[in-house]
Write a protein that binds this DNA or RNA. Structure first.
Lengths: 134, 134
DNA sequence: ATGTATGCAAAACATTTGCACCTGG
DNA sequence: CCAGGTGCAAATGTTTTGCATACAT
């Protein structure tokens, strides 16, 4: 029984071919941040027959199950990445579209402080930096 | 000569009815953050005949001219707000959806620092905090 | 077997664009 | 007058959905 199968069962999803293939792909791809289209094309190239609609459905299920995170970067489409369990933010190269992950505890702390000064308990945040290579 | 006309001329845009109306609306609306659809509906309700395509074109021109800022919050559509000249980020109340603006120079500085450590020149960023009232 | 998942095509959105007509300077 | 702006409808790109078929348990 593979790791993927166990992960799927753990979150209450039936073990089906598309789900296993997509999970494997996200796990093994050198590019951690993929759009639904990216996933779809990668599977086709690997000779797997999966419908684009299924890719969307599965990724959404994975998101709800906490297996992946969905990010709405600029550009009109969402990107997905396996939830590593370690929180991080993203920096997007405006030239190549490359996504770099980073974590800065100082920024995290300041966000919490800002929220509290405004009278809120911070429950989440989205931080994306855009820049060009220097 | 109204303030709106002057602003349009200043950025090199012809003074046309749709542009003036949209600028007035953004200036006077109690809700500073509006989608293209919001603007379109508000104008219709005010008895103004403007095409949705024109709203999009005008808002895009305003953005390029620096009159408004476009934000891609979660939810699949962009929201626009008049550029007050003072940069700020947003905190969204997860309970009421209310949007609060804030500015924190320390965070701004850290973002720049992070980008540079990653080898990029920071050209933009998107920071949205989510929280519930305490 | 049987309820769920899938694939396909069509629908649903938000946004953009082509084009004939209208308008501001 | 005439370059540029507008309205409409059609095109676009992304994501969702309806439905008949295929699959997991």
């Amino acid at each position: 029984m593979t790791t993927e199968n166990q992960e799927l069962r753990k979150v209450g999803l039936k073990v089906t071919l598309p789900r296993v293939k997509i999970l494997q792909l996200l796990d093994s791809s050198p590019e951690r941040h993929m759009s639904a289209e990216d996933v779809y094309k990668a599977l086709l190239e690997a000779g797997e027959e999966v419908g684009l609609a299924t890719v969307y459905r599965v990724l959404t299920q994975f998101e709800q199950a906490g297996l992946v995170e969905r990010h709405n970067f600029d550009g009109g489409h969402s990107v997905f990445e396996l939830d590593s369990g370690e929180h991080h933010d993203h920096m997007v190269c405006t030239k190549t579209g490359k996504v770099v992950e980073f974590h800065n505890q100082e920024i995290e702390n300041l966000q919490k402080k800002v929220a509290e000064e405004l009278g809120y308990e911070l429950t989440g945040h989205s931080l994306v930096l855009y820049g060009k290579p220097k």
